[in-house]
């Protein structure tokens, strides 16, 4: 080696340490429910609800919000997930009055306001159907880092929509707290939500 040898310092320890600290997030609660405090963006949107009213996140302040993207023509995942959430609300008993499930359609072409109203009505009074323009919906999926796209239509013009399957859970201040993944059980959701409700932490500041 032709370069004169030199003393060099091994001062990369702080860099590595910082990197390790970053790794210490996303702790598991119940199986398939993840703590996402500080990771997912706070609740914020401009959409129209199933009664044709323009709504924003502020309209749901004070309630625990469960946010789910889907569409009414969905044959498997959406009804299963919403049924699971309805079951979880049943298990919560009187506490359910402080929970709202926001169902945001990723298929606004077919999910008109009346369609949406009939659909969410089937799941119970705590379910809200939300619809947006393309721009509103795009802003929303960018914010929550999810995606959707239409599959090719069949010969009858029916098509499926590929979309996210997670449920984001926000506290009364609109801060993201939990993320329920595909295959979660209603018992798991109930346990985690009740724990947060009873600790008073999920509704603090309301």
């Amino acid at each position: 080696m032709s370069v004169p040898s030199r003393r060099r310092t091994l001062a990369c320890a702080p860099v590595m340490l910082g990197a390790l600290l970053l790794a210490g997030c996303a702790t598991r609660l119940q199986p398939d429910v993840t703590d996402v405090r500080g990771l997912v963006a706070p609740l914020e949107f401009n959409l129209t609800d199933q009664n044709g009213r323009a709504v924003t996140a502020a309209d749901y302040r004070g309630d625990i919000v469960m946010l789910y993207f889907g569409y009414t023509h969905c044959t498997q995942e959406c009804p299963a997930t919403l049924a699971m959430l309805a079951d979880a609300l049943d298990r919560l008993g009187p506490l359910a009055s402080r929970v709202r499930v926001l169902f945001v359609t990723v298929d606004p072409r077919r999910d008109t306001i009346p369609v949406l109203k009939r659909y969410v009505g089937d799941f119970g009074p705590h379910f809200v159907g939300l619809r947006g323009t393309d721009a509103q919906l795009t802003a929303m999926i960018k914010r929550y880092r999810v995606s959707y796209h239409d599959e090719k239509p069949d010969k009858n013009g029916n098509y499926e929509v590929i979309h996210s399957s997670v449920v984001f859970i926000f506290d009364g201040r609109g801060r993201a707290r939990l993320l329920a993944q595909t295959g979660f059980s209603s018992a798991a959701i109930t346990t985690d939500v009740r724990r947060l409700l009873e600790g008073g932490r999920l509704l603090e500041g309301t």
Binding site: C12, A19, L22, C25, A26, T34, G38, L39, A41
Partner: peptide
Amino acid sequence: LLFVGLIFFWLIPRVHFATMIDT
């Protein structure tokens, strides 16, 4: 070490999960 360490770090499944949901 930093070069391969970064490739490795961002691909640790737990880290990757948090990275992809947090802008």
